[in-house]
Design a protein around this nucleic acid. Structure first.
Lengths: 330, 330
DNA sequence: GTTTGCTCGGCAAACGTTTTCCGGCTTCGC
DNA sequence: GCGAAGCCGGAAAACGTTTGCCGAGCAAAC
């Protein structure tokens, strides 16, 4: 109906209140002292006319947009929606907004998305980089323009980050499997160019060399899906039939492994664990590692919201995760 | 390292190219003819200096931000990440960006989020409203300020929308259950204030009255989670033990129902179906309705991206979904 | 009583871009 | 050969806000 609703500007508020634009601005933002009486008049006029400051005009002047760019590799992976949700809530509670980009695991799309976000003059860039190698260049070039914070996946130690410790949970998982009788644990990772998966893989190798020195390292990597998990399980088991435990870098992979295992001979008992503690893990009684998403988000937004950029430029946080033991590792 | 990298402005490009600002602007955007030679000079200088037009300045002048606000009720529900992903890709392929807000199913948070987005001067607002009643006012007030498009959930027929037909799939599900021998189908909905769930509920009642006239209508509503699905199944079955089929408004609910059913006596065969065809549905062999997320997104973005606002202001699209039959309804 | 200093309102500049308007030049038709 | 009509470059205004600066008023200090 209303073709041109016409947003009311600060100019009209000033006119209505009989004040100058500057006084209205100061009265409403509180950026400088204004006589209480005038503040009241400004506020009255503002609410009477339904004035809401235009962020575009403000941004142009202040050179801050109150907006963060958030770049995630794949919303299809349930870990990321949880992260996005936590970040968005934390941001909105401070009046900040989030521009989202899903790169579909493609480094080129990632680079393009970062540029788009930079053009939009985001105050900071929060990113879970796609690829340990291919994302590096784009990341550091962005970092020279705007504060950048790596979330969860860190590929460049020189750039601020908030990450999750991967070593402790992997170790706890292996120990648990050993306690349950496993003697030949194996590992199935995602693409090794994914930072977190690579760290889990390395942690596994580390634990294995401590607890099973001399044993072969039974470890493969593949895609991030039940299908590839299933395929990996098959090839792993045909190569090393003695395997009696599988640590998976991801719940989705673990689902595929479980399918394969539960379809096999009932006598064959193989422990399985995943990562991220997603819905399927709960449904399938799968032991998994719960990521401290809320903590990641709180730290990230607290850093990114810092008016001085100092917090953002120095953040190097590592938070702990928690293993949720279930029937799949009994 | 670089404390103040200093973004290069069009002014500097103009100086470098020995042209006026206006000419550079026109050369780079192509908004008016410029001599080829000068275009080249402008482009050379621009890329030499690494110039990228500042969207904030541009937005202030053009009154368009190239940004959409996207308001979703809950990213924890796997349907929405899929939708967000599809929307974001469609948007980015046209150089447009998305400001996201997750309202956590709270109408007040929703209203607040909409205001924040309006202040950011989004070109359009894409929203899946939380509540059939409580969201109405905020929605129509927003609609008087900016083009609004309801996605998936529609609560106000007077405002443009892109929705999915709910009647056909519900009907197909019931028919399938009947064909499999069911004589007493029941329905479990989400909160009835959720538009889509309500439509599914109504469609179910409709089909039942056609196929089982005189029979009692076995239908309850509850939360959106396996837990509440399980609880609903229990109360439903204790009240009507004859129930032999359950249409659920959502995969999460269906998961709870399945748990309850599969834990019961093996002889008791109860067909179960869900909605959204999420990962768990595939894993648990659950019949489900696959939502045409891609289509929703394409239509929505095509409408929202229309430079004239006409498309956006008239869109009333209904797309069809597809039932994926699996073991749970055999 | 004069000076100093503080408080606070208003003018105007600035943020980076697009676009209207002006005017000089060229081209074309008659 | 002259007028009309394009083409296209540049100056300047405009988008909506914040903020540096000025100066008026007033209190305090000496």
């Amino acid at each position: 109906m209303d073709q041109a609703p016409h947003r009311v500007t600060i100019r009209e508020v000033a006119a209505d209140a009989g004040l100058s634009i500057s006084t209205v601005s100061r009265a409403l933002t509180g950026s400088r002292a204004v006589l209480p009486e005038l503040v009241r008049r400004a506020q009255d006029s503002a609410s009477k006319l339904g004035y809401r400051a235009d962020t575009v005009g403000r941004s142009l002047r202040t050179q801050r947009t109150g907006t963060f760019g958030l770049v995630v590799p794949d919303l299809t992976n349930p870990f990321f929606p949880a992260l996005v949700q936590a970040l968005e809530h934390a941001a909105r509670s401070r009046g900040l907004s989030i521009l989202i980009a899903d790169t579909g695991n493609d480094p080129e799309a990632e680079a393009a998305a970062m540029n788009t976000l930079l053009d939009r003059r985001v105050d900071a860039l929060l990113i879970s980089p796609v690829d340990l190698e291919a994302s590096r260049e784009g990341l550091s070039s962005a970092a020279s323009t705007v504060p950048v914070l790596q979330i969860d996946r860190v590929i460049d130690e020189g750039i601020p980050f908030v990450r999750v410790d991967q070593e402790a949970p992997v170790k706890a998982l292996v120990e648990r499997m050993i306690a349950a009788g496993c003697r030949h644990p194996a590992f199935i990772g995602q693409d090794p160019r994914i930072a977190t998966s690579r760290e889990r893989e390395v942690a596994f190798a580390q634990v294995m060399s401590e607890r099973f020195a001399g044993e072969p390292l039974r470890s493969v990597t593949g895609g991030t899906s039940p299908q590839s998990g299933r395929a990996a399980a098959e090839s792993l088991l045909s190569r090393w039939p003695e395997i009696d435990g599988v640590v998976c870098a991801n719940d989705l992979i673990a689902v595929g492994v479980l399918e394969h295992v539960r379809a096999g001979p009932a006598a064959q008992r193989i422990a399985v664990s995943g990562f991220d503690d997603t819905l399927v893990a709960q449904v399938l009684d799968l032991t998994s590692v719960r990521q401290p998403v809320q903590q990641l988000a709180d730290i990230a937004i607290a850093a990114a919201a810092d008016p001085e950029r100092s917090a953002l430029l120095t953040t190097r946080a590592v938070v702990a995760s928690e293993v949720v033991f279930r029937r799949s590792t009994d």
